[in-house]
Each structure stands twice: as structure tokens, then as C-alpha cells.
């Protein structure tokens, strides 16, 4: 029986069914199915080119799947544009940091808050003095540990701080679910440890789909892990199950690494 058939469909916040996407001869998603329950941290791992980022892009609506269905909070969102999905509470952080570099950290997050505050055809009041934008933005910065850096231009923040800012922006719309695309990429051990602590604190309030290479972080945080190889789910289950899964050890972790975890 397939993994996704086993889990309770009605309880899932995000439900992906038989998602398929091809780029010419390359299969990026191969009848891919998974689900994320409210308050769950579901990690997706897999070797390079396994189709992890393609999966996230289809979930956010930046790529349209060839086949399959995506359901979020009971709604079929397969055909919805990015901004509509975002409005429903599905927030993404980017693998390659994608910020408004010429604006301050607080401005970055304020824009994200503004995105969820209805239309922006307000032409007169100074947006930087609107407490309904600035206060939630400040709160999100504090949650990710950037409270002190609010007025620094985004271009002057460190790589680790960019990652934190990314997540603050994702948090700004009070999303029901976060899609995090390699938040640990390029972080030093200390920064990684801080990120793990931060995600642990966040996961009580938001469902999280985490794509990550850092196995230590994945096994420390995940409630469930799905392993992708060539766009196909080869295993899915609790961290213990994945750790001992023979096919995963062979296809992905490698005997050496498998021995370490």
C-alpha cells in the first residue's frame, strides 16, 4: 500500500497526489505523492537532481505539473497562481536567497506582511509609519533572532542572517504551512545549530515541508521523512524507519554516511 493512502487524507493540510513533471527526457516528479499534517515537520531528502526544488516550485505554483493534484487545506490548488496560494497560507523560503537587497531587513518583512493585508492600492499614507505593517514585521524578525538588525540594509546582512530573514518573510503572513528549501545551505556549524533551534520552535505553530541536505538537521527535526530519487518516492516514514531502510541506505545515504547517522 502506498504511503499516502495510509495516512488520513482528511487530516492532511497538504496533500500531493500522483504529481508528475517532465523536462524533455528528464523526469523531475514521477507520480509523486505525499502529505503533511498540521503541526508536522515533513522532510524531503534525496540526492542532487532528485527533483526536490521542482517539487517545491510546483507546490508554490511557479511550475505547473503535467499530471497530478495538489490539495491544500481541503482546496484543490493545482491550478491556482502563486499569489493565491500564498494568500491561502502557503509560504515559501527560497534556496537561493531572494531578498529585496536595497531595502532594510524590516522593509523586507513589512512588504511580506503587506502582501497579506489586502490590496495595496493605498497611495497616500506613509507605509513605514503604519503600525499594522511594522509591528508584525518586527515580531517576525524577533522570532528568527534578527530583532537587533531590523534597520540594516538586507545587502549588508551575513549569509546566515539572509536565511533568517528569508524565514521571517515567510512567517510574516502568518502562514499555515512553510515550504523551506534548504534553509541550512552554506551555513557554518554554529549558524546551522541556531537554525535547527529556530525551526524546532516554529514547528509547534506551523506545518513545515523541509527540503534539506543536512542529514543531522533533518533527523533532529523531522516527524516524517520522504526520500526522493529521480522524482520518485522510494521511502517515506518516521526517521527511525528511514535510517534503517535498506533501499535508502543503498540509493542515497551510502554505506559510510549510513553508518554515521
Amino acid at each position: 500500500m502506498d504511503y499516502w493512502q495510509r495516512c488520513n487524507v482528511a487530516d492532511a493540510l497538504l496533500q500531493v497526489e500522483a504529481l508528475s513533471k517532465r523536462f524533455g527526457g528528464i523526469v523531475a516528479s514521477d507520480a509523486l505523492s505525499l502529505s503533511v499534517a498540521p503541526g508536522e515537520l515533513h522532510a524531503v531528502i534525496g540526492p542532487n537532481g532528485a527533483g526536490k526544488t521542482t517539487l517545491i516550485s510546483q507546490l508554490t505554483g511557479q511550475l505547473a505539473p503535467d499530471f497530478g493534484k495538489i490539495t491544500f487545506a481541503g482546496l484543490d490548488i493545482t491550478a491556482l497562481p502563486t499569489h493565491r496560494r500564498s494568500a491561502l497560507g502557503l509560504a515559501r523560503s527560497f534556496q537561493i536567497t531572494s531578498l529585496f537587497l536595497d531595502m532594510s531587513a524590516l522593509d523586507n518583512v513589512s512588504l511580506a506582511v503587506q502582501a497579506h493585508a489586502g490590496h495595496s492600492f493605498r497611495f497616500w499614507r506613509d507605509a513605514r509609519n503604519e503600525s499594522e505593517l511594522r509591528e508584525p514585521a518586527r515580531a517576525a524578525l524577533v522570532r528568527v533572532g534578527l530583532g537587533e538588525r531590523a534597520s540594516a540594509p538586507a545587502a549588508e546582512l551575513s549569509h546566515g542572517e539572509h536565511r533568517q530573514l528569508e524565514i521571517a518573510m515567510a512567517l510574516a503572513g502568518r502562514p499555515r504551512m512553510l515550504l523551506l528549501d534548504e534553509p541550512m545551505a552554506g551555513l557554518g556549524p554554529e549558524e546551522s545549530a541556531r537554525m535547527v533551534e529556530m525551526l524546532r520552535a516554529l514547528k509547534s505553530e506551523h506545518a513545515i515541508l523541509l527540503v534539506e541536505h543536512d542529514m543531522e538537521a533533518v533527523f533532529a527535526l523531522a516527524d516524517r521523512i520522504t526520500v526522493l530519487v529521480y522524482g520518485r518516492v522510494i521511502a517515506s516514514g518516521a526517521p527511525e524507519t528511514i535510517r534503517n531502510h535498506a533501499e535508502v541506505r543503498r540509493a542515497y545515504l551510502g554505506e559510510q554516511e549510513a553508518a554515521d547517522v
Binding site: 502563486t82 500564498s86 531572494s98 529585496f100 512588504l111 502582501a115 503572513g173
Partner: peptide
């Protein structure tokens, strides 16, 4: 702010809604 954001990073503006 929307106009400036879109100059700075239009793709990201779509992503945040």
C-alpha cells in the same frame, strides 16, 4: 512599496503574494 519591491525583485514579489 509594491512598486519599489517589484523593481528590486519582481519574482519574489509574486512569491509573497
Amino acid at each position: 512599496m509594491v512598486i519599489r519591491g517589484s523593481r528590486s525583485n519582481d519574482r519574489r514579489m509574486h512569491a509573497i503574494g
